[in-house]
């Protein structure tokens, strides 16, 4: 099992507040890595550091890109993280292009490929065959993902007008159109009903097993994170407090303490079992 991303001694401070404190983490290639932790633990800050939206105060983020060799994510601006390193993220509060149609959202995600094909818009202005082909391919790619995520019927509707669960799927489809090596999903199951969560599980496993995309998953919904993750990392107050397989993490006393306080050791297990029952 090779390592795709290795986070070393990552620290992120905002003035006096230390959001991430000396965090080290390995993300294996072709696997699903879950990141859990109480609210305000620094999970989203970690994503922001990974994808270039924040510059880490200290630390290195090494990505072993399968074709481009080692890339240092902390040195890249955010658009190059997605374009060159192919590390693509979704957002906790969905960020679609609401007035554009679903199809347009997916085409915009392929901007760099199309822009190159349009040769600074000149080939595009005169609609040369090279550009027309690139556009057809982009639409085909979008169509494939729309079908895989059961979004075809919404293709020509404005993205912002669709239901919440659908918008979540659109955001994942859009991220997939960027052709990610590492897909960072920030609470993809938030606001989904149990049936939709189950579908999400299936999708994540498909992406990982069939397409070999590594996934980094922040999630509060235990029915998702415990079922699909190969490996889980628990963060609290910006520090890693536990790491391991879902079963190992579930029974880790530090984790139980972080979630429920000192005394109640059964709590996490109970909470987990309850969500399990609801899902099934």
């Amino acid at each position: 099992m090779s390592t795709l991303l290795s986070v070393r001694d990552l620290t992120m401070r905002f003035g006096g507040l230390t959001a991430i404190d000396d965090l080290s983490l390995e993300v294996p290639a072709g696997k699903i890595t879950g990141i859990i932790g109480p609210n305000g633990a620094g999970k989203t800050t970690l994503f922001n550091c990974l994808t270039g939206f924040y510059k880490p105060t200290v630390g290195t983020l090494r990505l072993a890109h399968p074709r481009r060799g080692e890339l240092r994510l902390e040195k890249l601006p955010s658009h190059r993280v997605a374009r060159d390193a192919q590390v693509v993220r979704t957002f906790q509060n969905i960020r679609l292009f609401p007035k554009m149609t679903v199809l347009e959202n997916l085409i915009v995600a392929q901007h760099n490929v199309l822009q190159r094909a349009s040769r600074f818009s000149l080939a595009g202005l005169f609609s040369l065959p090279g550009y027309r082909r690139a556009e057809r391919e982009a639409v085909e790619r979008a169509r494939t993902w729309l079908e895989r995520l059961r979004l075809t019927q919404f293709a020509d509707d404005a993205a912002g007008a669709l239901p919440y669960g659908t918008q979540r799927r659109i955001e994942i489809a859009r991220a997939l159109c960027v052709d990610p090596v590492l897909l960072c999903l920030d609470e993809p199951a938030a606001g989904l009903n149990p049936r939709e969560s189950a579908e999400l599980n299936e999708l994540l496993l498909y992406l990982c097993d069939e397409l070999g995309i590594a996934i980094l998953l922040i999630e509060h919904d235990m029915s998702v994170v415990m079922n699909v993750s190969d490996h889980i990392c628990v963060i609290n107050y910006g520090r890693k407090i536990a790491e391991g397989t879902p079963d190992a993490v579930k029974n880790d006393p530090h984790v139980i303490k972080a979630y429920l306080g000192e005394d109640d050791e059964e709590g996490v297990m109970q909470a987990y079992d309850e969500t399990e029952e609801r899902a099934s």
Partner: peptide, 11 residues
């Protein structure tokens, strides 16, 4: 529509 999402898409 959304500048941050643009950056996240590699634009």
């Amino acid at each position: 529509e959304d500048e941050i999402a643009c950056k996240a898409m590699g634009m």
